[in-house]
Amino acid sequence: MTATVPDLLVFLAAAAMVVVGAIGVITFRNPVHSAISLILTLLGVAVAFIEQEAHFLAAVQVIVYAGAIVVLFLFVIMFLGVDEREDVTVEPLIGQRPLAYASVFVTVGGIVAMLSRGGWVTGASTVTGPTAVYNGSTVDNVTAVGQSVFTTYLFAFEATAALLIIAVVGAVVLARRERSVEGGESA
């Protein structure tokens, strides 16, 4: 399996965006810069989705993640005014950083070692069928995903609708300003 030059360039660009953005998220001291860096990572993941023929998910990634979720992050950062810089060099918990290095190294090293051994796919395929085929005819990716979400996974789809409503109501209840804050310890 040999990769063509454009495919290789697209992959390398996406990988660079993902890694640089992710390192920026965890190293920038200003949370606004971290949020902007998170957008870079999310767009890189969207490019990787397109590279793998997942066109619908790439669009959803840009609209929902880079559009809605990062804007929500930025809104909360601005709303709270938490633009004070966190000193990332201070280590409040003794040995926290070496332990974090060790556990992350073990996790990533284990995954990569497992990949290099091969044979990481076992078992039967699912009931939903191939990525670009529905009822025996070739369709585009959006149609295939839509058909599987609205037929095989219809119950889960309805459950996510209830989940979103509950999340919105919960967020409103949690973030509501208490009326009697000055009066003492109200629940």
Binding site: A54, P130, N141, S148, V149
Partner: peptide, 11 residues
């Protein structure tokens, strides 16, 4: 999902 040609991963 792409390597196994199975749309369940994308769902």
């Amino acid at each position: 999902s792409n390597s196994l040609h199975d749309v369940a991963g994308q769902a």
